[in-house]
């Protein structure tokens, strides 16, 4: 169910996003103090004036140092938060692998967790019944599927979460630093699955620090620095430029 009616899959139009630095203080005492002193809240600008368009079938990597705004960009695209200014548009069904197993509970069995997470990702009862065996098979969990999740190794949990997420059959796949899941064999399987995704003409937006992964999956890269887009272009060129800028010898000033 592709929705390529000429519109890009993801559009950011002059997007600004900031976080208030005092958001951590949330007791009545802090609120009152704040009200009485009327001091201006300090803001941290995670994204500044971001404009970009990702076409259907494009696979785009977001690179940049820690705190450059990569995750915020992905969260905005996923619809978890709203921009302060500007517009975010998404056309197509999204599946986001932001944090594998966000809806997982350690006391429930693998099977129960699969159903809950599939429902959270928007699958209907019928789809889940149909895809359940496939999900379990892909994760290579075997008989453990009826054991509580806390008995799983972290690799097994990751494999299960990844299997659920890719079973949704989204138009747009958003991935945040989660591709190092499982052992080498499973990583190869994930890689193959994601490449198949690309071949099917789906859109991919991902963040990773592993340049090998990025070169594999993505054709285009967007380089963020302190919330601004520094550069936007083909992966090899940007990775090269990014590496040069990040190397300790480079004189690097932030703007």
């Amino acid at each position: 169910m592709s929705t390529s009616d000429g519109r890009p899959a993801i559009v950011f139009d002059q997007v600004w996003k900031s976080f208030s630095l005092h958001a951590g203080q949330m007791l009545i005492r802090d609120r009152l103090k704040h009200l009485l002193r009327r001091r201006r809240t300090e803001k941290f600008h995670a994204l500044r004036e971001i404009s970009l368009a990702v076409g259907h079938g494009e696979s785009v990597a977001v690179i940049g140092h820690n705190g450059a705004g990569k995750s915020t960009l992905l969260n905005l695209a996923t619809g978890l938060c709203r921009p302060d200014r500007g517009r975010v548009e998404v056309h197509g069904r999204i599946a986001a692998l932001l944090d594998l197993g966000a809806g997982f509970h350690p006391d429930l069995t693998g099977a129960e967790n699969v159903r809950i997470n599939a429902a959270l990702l928007g699958l209907a009862r019928r789809d889940v019944r149909q895809k359940f065996d496939e999900i379990v098979a892909f994760a290579e969990i075997g008989e453990f599927i009826h054991e509580p999740l806390r008995t799983y190794s972290s690799g097994m949990q990751m494999r299960l979460a990844f299997s659920v997420a890719v079973s949704v059959d989204p138009d747009i796949l958003i991935i945040d630093e989660v591709l190092g899941v499982g052992d080498l064999a499973f990583q190869a399987k994930c890689r193959e699955r994601i490449l198949r995704f690309r071949q099917m003409g789906k859109t991919i937006l991902c963040v990773s620090h592993a340049s090998a992964t990025l070169q594999d999956f993505c054709t285009r890269a967007i380089w963020l620095d302190h919330g601004r887009i520094v550069d936007d272009g083909p992966v090899p060129r940007l990775l090269e430029a990014y590496k040069t800028a990040m190397s300790p010898r480079a004189v690097y000033t932030t703007g």
């Binding site: 996923t78 619809g79 998404v90 069904r93 999204i94 159903r115 809950i116 429902a119 959270l120 990702l121 928007g122 699958l123 209907a124 009862r125 889940v128």
Partner: peptide
């Protein structure tokens, strides 16, 4: 973005 899914199934599962 609008969440598209099976509300009833989601609520039942949760």
């Amino acid at each position: 973005m609008k969440w598209r899914g099976d509300y009833l199934y989601l609520v039942q599962n949760l």
